[in-house]
Design a protein around this nucleic acid. Structure first.
Lengths: 136, 136
DNA sequence: CAACGGATGTTATAAAATATTACATGAAAA
DNA sequence: TTTTCATGTAATATTTTATAACATCCGTTG
């Protein structure tokens, strides 16, 4: 089984994800409602998150703390499905996404000009894609 | 945070562990009752398993399928706390345990002489410590 | 300024998942 | 045969999660 498969397996209930990300259930559900994440569900409709879901939530949180709103985060995460802006050369989709993220981030920050106090919650920067922050 | 810490974090509820290991809740609880595992608990007393817990359960399952009983598994996993048989040279505890496991396993299999149909459930061998078997 | 909308908190209620305990059972051991 | 071990099953309580509605704080906008 590939590492990719492993990172996409639905493993964690929302309670664990709350601790892993320091987000409230309300926030996580709200982000899902706005299509920033699509966690799997159990037969009984309870959410089950993968490592990738958790990583994405950490990215979302970082962007929130930088003052982006949902629309901005969608841009950064390239969740703007209609007429996706294609890059000329096709790199691996993962790498491409990261590149785009940084580019769009600058653009968006400039666009939005100001951002509220960035480290409002006293949280340091997160190392994305590493699930490096755990527990309280 | 070290990899060891990561593997010891309580993350999975019993329902997920059931799927990861193909064990029933009854079996998992019974093994806990017999001190083969000590999963963490939530505030509400619900079990939370780490990667290491899951790996251990996979080991237990493999031994069960080889015909060992709880006492035998305790021996193999070196959970026989009183008067632990010390090896002369102190290797890393992980490596030591693995060595002992294989040695004791042969000894125990010989001791118990016969073992019921080993692959009763049609399950292949497990790669221990790798969490390689997932889902149904 | 007042109204509005976005992001989140809070509360209520229902449903799902898990815990514990007791009893049942098949097979192996004594 | 009678026990014992490992597991199944059923009943009941508790915990966790889901959903929905309403509240609140705070920028933005008319």
């Amino acid at each position: 089984m590939g590492d990719d498969t492993r990172r996409n397996m639905a493993l964690f209930p929302i309670g664990i994800v709350m601790k892993l990300t320091d987000l409230t259930a309300r926030q996580i559900r709200y982000y899902e409602q706005n299509d920033l994440i699509q966690p799997a569900r159990t037969e009984g409709k309870q959410r089950l998150f993968s490592f990738n879901d958790v990583d994405r939530l950490l990215e979302i949180k970082a962007l929130i703390e930088k003052g982006l709103n949902i629309a901005g985060i969608k841009q950064v995460l390239q969740l703007n499905d209609p007429t996706p802006v294609q890059t000329e050369i096709t790199t691996t989709s993962e790498t491409k996404r990261k590149e785009m993220s940084d580019k769009d981030l600058h653009q968006l920050l400039r666009q939005q000009i100001m951002y509220r106090n960035a480290s409002r919650h006293g949280e340091g920067a997160l190392i994305r894609g590493e699930l490096s922050r755990f527990f309280h």
